[in-house]
Amino acid sequence: MHNSAVLRPITNLFGKVSGFANRNPTRMAIILGLGLYAFTVFQVPGAFSVQAISTLFMMTLLLSFASAGQTMVLIGGGMDFTVGAVMSVAAMITTSIMRGEDGRFLQAFAVCMLLGAAVGFINGVCTTKVGLPALVVTLAIGNVVTRMSYLVTAGTPVGRVGPAFASSVIYRHFGFIPSLALYALILFPLVFYILYRSRFGRQLYLVGNNPEAARLCGINVNKIKTISYMISGMLSAFTGMLGVGMLQASRNQMFDAYAYQSLIAVVVGGTSFAGGVGTYGGTIAGSMVMVMLNNMLTALNLSQRVREITLGLVLVLILVMYNRRKGVRQ
């Protein structure tokens, strides 16, 4: 817009990168994630090890699970801020039902799914019926869910996960493949199927892209959106179970940070806030970017203030490359 002669080459280059990012958000995210890791290793050679890659892989998987539902909700034109609250509550339910015994896994699983579906249902109904921004409505619902968890647990959740369940998450096959990857073998195809092969998935894209057109095609827009929230709730609840499988003991609000983390991972993966655009492959790559970014900031051994400023600026830079809203003149 206001290019001077000096800035032109830089803006041109940036324009090219940005164009590539918008055409191939998944590939761009993969390049970014690997680039961040390469930079980390360049600065801190010790950061390159089988052990580290294995841990990073595991953290990426966990965030990508947490972001799966968020991806669907955003594609449908909504936003789910209850991801963190549901994950935390599911974690508390899991430990308090299992109490260190693997035999109770199915009970915990059933209760968590019910919880996720219920919160998702409330999210869906409230956002579609109230007509207020999904951000504010789901935030309020998430708050109530969190507060309720304090009442029920009196602030000190009890129990532990079963040992077999814990090792099904943290065990490393051949010393480096985290067992969590086995869950990905089930979850990834499931999410891909829902998004790209099922009728629901096709309708979801249409609803997000143009709700009016979807309505004219005879799609029940509110129903589709509500289902997307319910799936998101259930996926968040399951991720909460896996997360506590890793950490073994639960706490109130333990996964609250995942509300924002998942949102950023999804957006970095090329899903737009406007709805109707996005892929889960991109989200997985976006999760990797977030994990690599945090890993880099720790490896660089920065003080907290420098770390926070750097984190904010890098996020801005990444966002600049991606997902810019269309200008009024375009």
Binding site: I264, R305, E308, N323
Partner: peptide, 26 residues
């Protein structure tokens, strides 16, 4: 960030929260 570069306002605000918090502690 929001109007000129056109970043999503929610995430731009989120990122800047970190930056401003760091500046505050500085």
């Amino acid at each position: 960030l929001i109007s000129v570069i056109r970043l999503p306002d929610l995430l731009a605000g989120f990122a800047m929260t970190y930056v401003i918090r760091g500046v505050n502690v500085f």
